[in-house]
Design a protein around this nucleic acid. Structure first.
Lengths: 261, 261
DNA sequence: GAGTGGTCTAGACCACTGT
DNA sequence: CAGTGGTCTAGACCACTCC
């Protein structure tokens, strides 16, 4: 076993057994290198293993810290039916709850929300999913939701709608109306669209530099990519969302009911 | 931007534009280091970025190659109902198809299959899921499925059953009966268990050294972790599976139907 | 044995943070 | 400013693969 793996194991063990406690700061790299009789780059390679596993956090110019286990967010497939049911509830009720609260169990007041809209054109990929021509005008909506107590968002969402379709209700084109009470399914309801099913496609990969930045991830931690495709009762794709979730803090839950024999 | 990132970008660009073609071998690291006027460790760091992204493949003692995009495997949530329907079909029909074929579209003859059984005791985690005492005897079944044309498996599966429950049919205790025609749902059928629903919990992280080995992944590529919890019509958990999937080759698909307004 | 990637060293300089 | 992590070097030796 490589030296850096042995060192990673030793530190991992210290963390798991609680000898190194959450929040505690590790000795500086040069001192750890001396302690483990190795060079700084080798020690750093050991640390980068632990960063990838989400066990420690390095802060440039500050130090290396044992990570406090962060709240894991469950994102359940039940949410879609829940959102659909909510979409036609009275405005007052819709105001009280959002789906992120539904996922996390946090209160509305714990959460910070950011939305941004822009107009874009369908590339090949999106055109194929929507079943429209390449270049069709789309409304691109970008969201991020934060827990006020933490600095990094739960998710980065890019949601796409066919521009000319949603333009039927001009309020839907203005990000100033976010967070929209009742969410996307209520928005679609205002233009006469009812959803029939939601398809989600999931894969995972290491984050790009940009994603690492935005989600507060370190290189080496995984990003879960989720593409949500919402199909209306008319059989047309109404919304496509690309969601990027931090792999070390997210658990997706899907329940498939089976018909009885 | 760091030197190693610039070099990674340059190589990435060469691959994306097709200047470096799939399967092509890159010059040796020491020569690349000279070309990019850098040291070998720095050049290696650039390459390790590309490995993480699945763009290249390094083979110790052989060389570094532009990766041929591998077949992506879709694993759809429809499979559960499909498997349930199949479980009571005639043996001849069950023999013809397995669920991996269902996922991949490959023929039975394209696939290699490996199974191993052992007895184990429920740890805290599994005991909680099954709703049994810690230490309860479990049957642990380990599977891997390969495409004959490729060297690395699609998935590593550890499946758990309550030992004393399945012992009702002794054939279920013997790995020599694998691949069992009709799969787990047929096996459960032989001991009078019908499944009511399947819950799947998904997360992602970098692979451990052991997983990287078994799935043919490089460190830095992501592993998708899927825990499948199968609940019987009696409300008891019948099977728990932990599935590890290569993030760069797997797409999970879940469809959630919604009730009409 | 020749050529390849895997690992490691000892030291250097830079960039960032907090005082 | 001192202390921290981020990056890089030039060279070394080892392990693996293939001829």
């Amino acid at each position: 076993m490589a030296r850096y793996e042995q060192i990673a194991d030793a530190l991992r063990h210290g963390i798991r057994t609680g000898r190194l406690r959450p929040g505690e700061r590790l000795p500086a790299e040069d001192r750890l290198a001396v302690r483990y009789r190795t060079s700084v780059p080798t020690l750093q390679r050991a640390l980068s293993e632990l960063v990838a596993e989400g066990l420690i956090d390095k802060r440039h110019g500050v130090g290396t810290f044992v990570r406090t286990p962060r709240r894991r967010v469950e994102r359940s497939s039940d949410r879609h039916q829940w959102e659909k049911d909510r979409a036609r509830r009275p405005r007052a009720e819709r105001l009280r709850t959002g789906s992120t609260e539904h996922d996390t169990g946090l209160e509305v007041t714990d959460l910070a929300f950011h939305a941004e809209y822009r107009e874009t054109k369908a590339d090949e990929d999106l055109a194929a999913v929507f079943g429209v021509h390449v270049g069709t005008r789309l409304l691109e909506r970008m969201y991020r939701t934060n827990c006020r107590a933490e600095d990094t968002p739960f998710a980065l969402v890019h949601s796409y709608l066919v521009h000319d379709l949603v333009a039927a209700n001009p309020e839907l084109l203005d990000a100033a109306n976010e967070p929209w009470p009742g969410g996307t399914q209520n928005q679609l309801y205002t233009i006469g669209i009812e959803l029939d099913r939601v398809e989600e496609r999931i894969t995972a990969r290491p984050p790009t530099a940009e994603e690492a930045e935005a989600l507060g991830l370190r290189k080496g931690v995984s990003v879960i990519l989720l593409r949500k495709i919402c199909t209306g009762t008319d059989g047309r794709v109404a919304e496509v969302s690309d969601v990027r979730l931090p792999g070390d803090r997210t658990e997706l839950v899907f329940t498939t009911p089976l018909t009885r024999w």
